[in-house]
């Protein structure tokens, strides 16, 4: 049987994790996904340390002045096709930290994001759902089909008004 590349990619989506500006909540839940109870490895998913080996970039947290460049570097090293999954509300808006002087906003200000998983932190089940959506997008991308960027959740809590609110908007 002849396997096409996009069928093979969908079967073993390796992922690399970068913690941008997160509080660790999403990160430990992501690690919990790897362990025997949730075990994302049964979907062929493997956590790798090198972005050059990965199909999926998993980002937690928002972007700040210092890590934006690192995130771009990690993203630039991903082979094509690739999918970006943002875990937690911080990746879409900055979450509870929105409005701080050092939070530029969601990850999508710096790199295109394909799947947002809402929650603070999302449950491992929600994360796995996000990964499976990412696999579908990966298959579409490797088949050369177009894929729309993720729709963002609407912010339900307004960022605080204060001396630093304007600065972060300007940034």
């Amino acid at each position: 049987m002849a396997w096409s590349v996009h069928e093979l990619l969908g079967r073993s989506p390796w992922f690399v994790h970068y913690n941008c500006n997160s509080c660790n909540g999403c990160d430990i839940e992501l690690l919990a996904c790897l362990t025997p109870l949730y075990d994302v490895e049964r979907f062929g998913m493997l956590h790798v340390g090198n972005p050059k080996h990965a199909d999926i970039l998993v980002v937690t947290g928002s972007v700040n002045h210092r890590n934006a460049r690192v995130l771009q570097n990690v993203y630039a090293q991903l082979p094509t096709p690739h999918v970006v999954v943002g875990l937690g509300v911080c990746t879409s808006s900055g979450g509870v930290f929105a409005g701080s002087y050092n939070v530029l906003g969601g990850v999508d200000k710096v790199i295109p994001v394909d799947v947002f998983v809402p929650g603070c932190p999302p449950r491992p089940e929600a994360m796995m759902d996000g990964f499976l959506r990412a696999v579908e997008i990966l298959k579409r991308k490797s088949a050369g089909l177009p894929s729309a960027p993720a729709e963002k959740e609407v912010i339900t809590v307004a960022p605080p008004s204060g001396p630093h609110a304007e600065e972060s908007d300007a940034a």
Binding site: C23, N64, G95, S161, H164
Partner: peptide
């Protein structure tokens, strides 16, 4: 790489909201 400015943010939110902020 992971500085979020929580201490400054805690001066903007009220003291009850800070519980949720400082948990983060």
């Amino acid at each position: 790489y992971i500085h979020r400015g929580i201490e400054k943010l805690a001066e903007v939110k009220d003291f009850q909201q800070n519980v949720f902020l400082l948990e983060h």
